[in-house]
Design a protein around this nucleic acid. Structure first.
Lengths: 216, 216, 216, 216
DNA sequence: GATGAATGAGATTTCATTCAT
DNA sequence: TATGAATGAAATCTCATTCAT
């Protein structure tokens, strides 16, 4: 199973990922489409304005629907975030499962590069959701739990491969995750003036040196 | 000159750092004290609740004053952030100026450790301001400009010392800044379960390996 | 086409005359009714308390609706005034177009009397709007523009008929407009202790003498 | 006694015209100067922004003094208006007393022109006060009383000379006063694009024709 | 299923007035 | 006599949520 980063990809079954109000109802084709539009719109607007500054009004305008309709599918803005977080977590867990044989040498670096590339792809899709998590200002326990679980899974997948010379792998992994997540944000926001392959190669290089290759 | 990270330290002259309304008036001792209280309260509440979730009401309650008084010194919440950003920039520029002889070897690593320690101290004081910047959701051009300037200064100070083997130092420096900034956030939020010296030593270690020491 | 001065008359299409927020949406029957209520309420309260002293709260109370609803249709009090000004201008332009053959003699005086009567009727409906204009303290360019345009149209319609012996018809017309407007205010405020027909006849008489009839 | 329209002229004795708080105290030289400054500032700001839109803050800024000082001399903004109104009334009553022999013929017209010129001068000085009266939105009984008295005096002075052919001199006088007052406003606001002598001659001409000269 | 309309609680902001120095 | 500081009531405006059609 590979991380789903296809832009057109449908979200998982709304029956599980939809917001609270929708979970209790049967959704027909039209309903599913409307829900999709709202999820997509949420992602788009969160990306543009940030989770906090986004108003329900922005979302429904983007989705070309009405306030009434929004509350037919989600209990509130947080509920929409929760649904998106669920979808994101699926991708992140697939990503964690796909971590290859990291370690010293060209093969290890190649595996690292592949992982980082996939992470960036997920970030490009779900950046605002991840940010809302990591900035920890959402205040919803369920959302937080999802985030912690996903990041713990990835952290664990990486920790096992760290260079043995590093004394505190748990701390080092947190630094590594911090770099990956934050740098992805900067890259996704197009603030790095270099082509994607250069960016990725450079990131791979310094991560390999710092965390996986033995020192001189 | 060293970075000012003393918690009790006075802010620079309110005549330059105060909010718009205060800049037009001369302030007596009492007025300066009140302004201080508001700046301190802003920092404290931004830290606790995040910039976006903070209400002016929270700030004046923390500062034990009234709404009316707040608007005597600042045009609005953003104006207060702007004043804090100005103070933060001063610290960051002092920090940039204080970067020692980074490079391979124990001396270089010691200089790096000292720098990272000072950065963390600044972050502990001005974290919420820095986050508001880097998350780029404030929407105030002046605030953005200040942030970009400060981070560029630090980035430039670091870039000169990077290991020559790194092909794209400008990109690498962005990754480095991303790690430092974001990891400081995690540490300042006490989410890293290890004592400060261990945290700092570990961060220093992996940064030294990744960016300043030659590879095996 | 005659000036619309009927108290129960509907306003023109809200799509063009409504406030900024309403212009962006399609309005159903209920929405149009609410908007009407707000326009009527605005006119009534402006008349009773004056534009400046009117609070949005007064208007929504008069219209039996809520603050939230007000801002659904108008951006603010000024925006409501703008909408009313638009409606008023329509009446004033119709009035300008309806000016008859003014001039010396009984026929001319009759035409003048008819015009003044219609002007007074418009004033009775839109007095507060016209006052807000002429007192020039609103500070909204669009409102000012509307007022100037309307008054210029009427002034031009009158200027063509002035007695040729008057040396500076453009200045004289401004004096005439000043008298008509201001006297209408006094009359509409019921400060003239005489029946309407006497008031109108007297005004017509002195205007006829001063501006349209040849001197002895 | 002639109307006082000198711009630098002192107001009458503050002991009688000052605001409520000042009336109870002895004013020394410095106090009188401060009060002058406040009265002048009030007039200037009322003229620029209108009575209603003026804040006490505007006045004290213009007068280069403080809020505290303002309330040392006046109970509130209305009290300041009242003081100005008192001064204005003195000028208007002098004006009423100075009305010459109006009537048909060149002598009458000359007397009328002189009167109108003096009225315009008073308006130029006290325009905002007069407007506050006539717009009747101040809500202070004392101020209203003063205004009514002054205008009644002038009206009475004019009424006695009206052309006998006018059937309702009381109504006609109100129309005349309306024209004079309102046209003065337009002229004082520099909205009439003609030199002062032309403006005055034109106004005199049409008033003479309409109210004082016999018809053809 | 969908939508426009309405609401009201709460946040922001203004400003006349009082107070302490 | 003068002033900067402080206050709080009231006004403006926003927006998540509910409702009627």
């Amino acid at each position: 199973m590979t991380a789903n980063v296809d832009d057109d990809a449908a979200y998982p079954d709304p029956a599980t990922l939809g917001g609270a109000p929708a979970r209790g109802r049967e959704l027909r084709a039209q309903g599913k489409r409307t829900m999709q539009r709202l999820l997509d719109a949420g992602l788009a607007v969160f990306a543009a304005r940030g989770y906090h500054s986004t108003r329900v009004d922005d979302i429904v305008r983007e989705a070309r629907t009405s306030h009434g309709t929004f509350y037919l599918y989600f209990a509130n803005k947080e509920d929409l975030l929760r649904a998106l977080a669920g979808a994101c977590v699926e991708d992140l867990e697939a990503l964690a499962a796909s971590v290859g044989r990291l370690g010293p040498g060209p093969d290890g670096e190649a595996a690292l590069g592949a992982f980082l590339g996939r992470f960036l792809a997920v970030y490009r899709r779900y950046g605002p959701v991840i940010r809302a998590w990591t900035e920890g200002q959402v205040g919803d326990a369920e959302v937080d739990r999802l985030g912690v679980a996903a990041f713990t899974a990835i952290g664990a997948a990486l920790a096992g491969h760290l260079d043995g010379a590093i004394e505190h792998p748990d701390v080092a992994v947190m630094a590594l995750m911090a770099m990956i997540e934050r740098f992805s944000f900067v890259v996704a926001a197009s603030r790095v003036p270099a082509p994607d392959d250069v960016v990725l190669a450079t990131l791979t290089r310094v991560v390999q040196r710092g965390f996986f290759a033995p020192e001189a």
